[in-house]
Amino acid sequence: MFKRLMMVALLVIAPLSAATAADQTNPYKLMDEAAQKTFDRLKNEQPQIRANPDYLRTIVDQELLPYVQVKYAGALVLGQYYKSATPAQREAYFAAFREYLKQAYGQALAMYHGQTYQIAPEQPLGDKTIVPIRVTIIDPNGRPPVRLDFQWRKNSQTGNWQAYDMIAEGVSMITTKQNEWGTLLRTKGIDGLTAQLKSISQQKITLEEKK
Rank of each mutant, 00 (worst) to 15 (best):
M1T: 01
F2Q: 02
V8F: 13
V8K: 01
V8T: 07
L10Y: 08
L10R: 00
L10N: 00
P15K: 12
L16F: 15
A19T: 08
A19S: 10
T20S: 11
A21K: 12
A22T: 12
A22L: 07
D23N: 09
D23L: 14
Q24M: 10
N26G: 06
Y28A: 06
Y28G: 07
Y28W: 08
K29T: 12
L30I: 02
M31Y: 03
A35C: 12
L42I: 11
L42T: 09
E45H: 06
E45L: 06
E45R: 05
P47G: 10
P47L: 10
P47K: 10
Q48V: 09
I49F: 08
I49S: 11
R50Q: 09
R50Y: 09
P53A: 13
D54V: 13
L56G: 07
L56I: 12
L56W: 07
R57P: 14
T58D: 07
I59A: 11
I59G: 03
D61F: 07
Q62G: 13
E63S: 08
L64Y: 09
L65Y: 12
V68I: 14
V68N: 09
Q69E: 01
K71L: 01
A73Y: 02
A73I: 03
A73H: 02
A73R: 00
G74M: 04
L76M: 05
V77S: 09
Q80D: 01
Y81F: 07
K83N: 07
A85Y: 06
A85N: 05
A85V: 07
T86H: 10
T86A: 09
P87S: 11
A88C: 12
Q89S: 11
Q89E: 12
R90I: 04
R90F: 03
E91Q: 13
A92N: 14
Y93W: 04
Y93M: 06
F94Q: 05
F94N: 09
A95T: 12
A95I: 10
A96T: 12
F97M: 10
R98W: 06
R98A: 12
K102M: 14
Q103G: 15
Y105S: 01
G106V: 08
A110G: 13
Q115S: 03
Q115F: 02
T116C: 15
Q118I: 13
Q118M: 14
P121C: 05
E122I: 09
Q123D: 07
L125T: 12
G126A: 00
K128P: 12
T129A: 00
T129F: 06
I130A: 00
I130Y: 07
V131S: 10
P132R: 09
I133V: 01
I137K: 08
I138W: 09
I138F: 13
D139V: 13
P140I: 14
N141T: 09
G142D: 06
G142L: 10
P144A: 00
P145M: 12
L148Y: 08
D149W: 02
F150L: 03
F150D: 00
Q151I: 04
W152A: 04
W152H: 05
R153W: 00
K154M: 05
K154N: 09
N155F: 01
N155E: 00
G159Q: 11
N160C: 09
N160K: 10
W161H: 02
W161P: 03
Q162E: 03
Q162N: 06
A163W: 15
Y164Q: 00
Y164W: 05
D165Q: 05
D165K: 00
D165Y: 02
M166P: 01
G170A: 00
V171H: 10
T175R: 06
T175E: 09
K177R: 13
K177D: 04
K177A: 01
E180R: 03
G182A: 02
K188C: 08
G192R: 15
L193Q: 15
A195W: 11
L197W: 14
K198A: 02
K198N: 08
S199N: 10
S199A: 02
S201M: 15
S201Q: 12
S201C: 15
Q203E: 13
K204F: 12
K204L: 08
T206I: 11
L207G: 15
E209C: 11
E209R: 13
E209L: 11
K210D: 07
K211C: 11
K211G: 12
